[in-house]
């Protein structure tokens, strides 16, 4: 019982966090099944310039857009991504491309970023820059705004899932749970998902959280509400039965 309470409390907190993002519900559906711009990439620890195409043909890509001088979301975003991916035990194929959208970044600064997150030797992780960032931004619907006073980009945390044909199969906006990441990994590996939930203001009352690992939905707090009528009925009847029982026995 107590564990349930904690469970509900955590979900309540989570839902208020989600509420802060306040994204328009259909933004994540933008650019779905459009082709990613085939920009040239310079990848840390590699000498050549290679086209994006070579990357996704080799393995589906999860693209994270960041800039190294970010004092806002980029760091927590990458930490969360790294941690979540550690939890995910999947046999599915994927690689992560961390790409800078700031023209001030170079291979050196990206290499430092990789070292800072201890990802410089991780096989699945690639850190890169490109000279055609605008084309890429346009193709994934990403529009960072330069704030000249704070000397920072105002931008959202965006993950883009790209399948081996180079199509955008799934987008995630904001710092998201590993369930959503798994759903992305399934999508870029062409696994059919009959349905999914759009990011909403509150998830406290949603019935199911999709678990892409098993392809099943796991119960959410809403499900507790669905069984509530049966539960309350049982309590009422037990209560009435107890009262009537004393009357029955005394008579």
């Amino acid at each position: 019982m107590f564990r349930n309470f904690i469970f509900v409390a955590i979900l309540a907190i989570q839902s208020t966090i989600n509420a802060q993002h306040n994204i328009s519900t259909l933004d994540e559906e933008k650019n779905i099944y459009e082709k990613i711009s085939n920009v040239p990439l310079k990848i840390v620890n590699r000498d050549d310039v290679r086209k994006f195409e070579l990357l996704y043909k080799e393995k589906p890509v999860i693209l994270a857009l960041v800039f190294t001088q970010c004092s806002g979301i980029c760091n927590p975003f990458l930490i969360q991504l790294k941690n979540s991916l550690q939890f995910i035990k999947t046999d599915k194929n994927y690689q992560i491309l961390v790409l800078s959208f700031d023209s001030r970044d170079n291979l050196e600064s990206m290499s430092k970023l990789a070292k800072r997150f201890e990802l410089d030797n991780a096989i699945n992780w690639k850190f890169a820059i490109t000279d055609s960032i605008q084309a890429l931004n346009n193709s994934v619907g990403f529009s960072p705004l330069w704030d000249s006073i704070r000397k920072q980009f105002d931008h959202e945390a965006l993950l883009v899932g790209i399948n081996q044909e180079g199509y955008i199969a799934k987008k995630l906006i904001g710092v998201r749970s590993h369930y959503d990441l798994e759903l992305m990994i399934r999508s870029i590996n062409h696994i059919y998902t009959p349905s999914y939930k759009l990011p909403a203001k509150n998830s406290l009352f949603s019935c199911f959280n999709y678990d892409p690992l098993t392809g099943k939905n796991t119960p959410g707090t809403g499900l507790l509400i669905i069984v509530l009528p049966a539960f309350i009925t049982a309590i009422i009847i037990l209560f009435v039965a107890l009262i009537s029982r004393t009357k029955r026995l005394s008579s």
Partner: peptide, 20 residues
């Protein structure tokens, strides 16, 4: 992939995502 947004009283079908 066809995106479909239903609204009172029309269906919007599009090959691109539909902006809410």
């Amino acid at each position: 992939i066809i995106h479909v947004s239903a609204m009172q009283y029309a269906f919007l079908l599009s090959e691109k995502n539909i902006d809410a």
